[in-house]
Amino acid sequence: MRVCLLLLTGLFTLPLYAAQLQLDADALSRQWSTAELLDHPQAMVIEVPADVSYKRAMHYRAVPLAALLEGLGSDDHLQAVALDGFAAEMPAAPLLQAGPARAWLAVEDPEQPWPPLAAGKPSAGPFYLVWTDPQRSGIRPEQWPFQIARLRRLQPVEQRFPQMRPDPALPANAPERLGFALFQQNCMACHRLNGGGDAQVGPDLNLPHNPTEYFAAPWLRQLIRDPQSLRQWPQSKMPAFSEAVLNEAELDALLAYLEHMAGRKS
């Protein structure tokens, strides 16, 4: 019995978790532990005055993300995969730049854990992509993925998932093309379309039916602007997309893309 108690005591003295961040980038692949990142030579305490996830000012010990992506180029494309299946698609260029907006990997210290995101929810850790001066480079809320487990270098979305592309015959300035870009930035982290995508959180937005096929336009706009005002349940994960995040012209383009893709099921 004493041996069992000693073993249990030893377990409870371990850190809360031993997190690992994995970068999958062929020859540039590598892995870091929480301790390695907290002790990284470029790690420092940063202030984020308006944190997207916590909705208030936060301080983090963080590493410039560019320092962890050495060898990657501005033409590369990355995907941040979270513990819950959230998969944020991100071009590498903004992540590598030194300003005006700058990307940081915030690292949760097991001895000083971050607060929960909400009652009954976990924190944003162990790893969270945060930005300083995000407004100066038009960084969107979906570019703040939290609970990150992996970073993957991948081909751009249109190459990996051709079934998601709008009709190539559309003019270059067609709103459906802008809508496709906005879909990648704002929707792909949670949703698939025509089976394309890596997200595991929300439903496919074209199969078996596209929301433009069963929602009247005003109600679909309301769902995007304020999901809880239309469908309310405690487990809902869909965020609200205010005009500060998605203006009216951009929302028009996004809906044009969805309506267009309703005729391109595959």
Score class of each variant (00 low, 15 high):
Trp219His: 14
Val201Asn: 03
Pro168Tyr: 10
Glu158Val: 03
Met44Asp: 14
Gln185Phe: 02
Ala216Val: 12
Ala106Glu: 00
Val201His: 07
Asp24Pro: 01
Ala244Leu: 02
Gly179Phe: 07
Leu117Met: 11
Met58Gly: 08
Val48Asp: 01
Lys265Val: 09
Ala25Met: 13
Met164Leu: 15
Thr34Ile: 06
Met238Pro: 00
Pro162Trp: 03
Trp219Asp: 14
Ile139Trp: 01
Ala119Val: 13
Leu246Gly: 02
Thr212Met: 13
His40Ser: 10
Ala106His: 03
Met90Leu: 15
Phe180Cys: 06
Phe86Val: 13
Phe146Pro: 03
Trp219Glu: 10
Asn247Met: 04
Leu14Gly: 10
Ala62Met: 09
Lys265Phe: 00
Glu47Val: 12
Gln112Glu: 08
Ala98Asn: 14
Gly85Thr: 09
Pro166Val: 14
Leu65Thr: 05
Asp226Met: 05
Phe86Met: 08
Pro168Gly: 10
Glu250Asp: 15
Gly120Phe: 04
Gln147Ser: 13
Leu117Ala: 02
Ala169Asn: 09
Leu223Gln: 11
Leu69Cys: 07
Val157Glu: 00
Phe161His: 14
Glu111Met: 12
Arg61Phe: 02
Leu105Asp: 00
Trp104Phe: 09
Pro126Arg: 05
Ala66Cys: 09
Ala35His: 11
Asp24Lys: 14
Gln79Leu: 15
Leu6Arg: 08
Ala92Pro: 06
Pro166Ile: 09
Tyr214Gln: 03
Pro162Tyr: 04
Cys4Tyr: 13
Gln235Glu: 14
Lys121Ile: 00
Leu182Tyr: 05
Asp75Lys: 09
Pro227Val: 04
Pro41Lys: 11
Asp204Arg: 07
Phe215Tyr: 15
Arg177Met: 11
